[in-house]
């Protein structure tokens, strides 16, 4: 199909201080019904969305971080995380939760969805997109 476009959701906000992160995730889930090529990027405070071990019980708000692990079922298998944004925040890839998808074209092998990329690599990825949605 020629009308498949490349969509990138650009996430720049921390998860619970504002509604952006949750809204972005919901739009991704809804948008995934439209058979487009969707990927997510996490830069600036957006990298905090993927921090592992989130536990919001004492806050009384929903911990939506497990939902990132469902994205593979929705055909969203590329989550780009910017290395510089991690480093500025004292984080490494090991501080992020493991997220995998099953590759249907490779015997359902489990593969990592998170790709840590440099700022310049991400700039290149952004240039390849048809649509970038900012959250």
């Amino acid at each position: 199909m020629s009308n498949i476009k490349k969509f990138l959701y650009l996430n720049r906000k921390a998860p619970y201080g504002s509604i952006y992160a949750l809204e972005s995730l919901e739009v991704v889930l809804i948008g995934a019904a439209f058979d487009q090529q969707v990927s997510l990027a996490f830069i600036d405070d957006g990298v905090f969305q993927l921090a592992k071990g989130q536990d919001t019980k004492s806050l009384g708000v929903k911990n939506f971080s497990p939902t990132f692990r469902a994205l593979g079922d929705y055909g969203v298998t590329k989550l780009y995380v910017e290395q510089e944004s991690l480093s500025e925040r004292g984080l490494t890839a090991a501080d992020l939760m493991p997220i995998t998808y099953e590759d249907e074209n490779d015997g359902f092998a489990e593969k990592p969805s998170i790709n840590v990329v440099s700022r310049s690599e991400l700039a290149g990825i952004m240039r390849e997109q048809d649509v970038i949605l900012s959250f």
Partner: peptide
């Protein structure tokens, strides 16, 4: 079980795919 694990109810397309498995 799906909700318990992912905190989201699956869309129908996701449901059929996961059930098939």
């Amino acid at each position: 079980n799906y909700y318990d694990e992912y905190q989201v109810a699956p869309a129908i397309r996701v449901l059929t795919k996961a059930l098939a498995k």
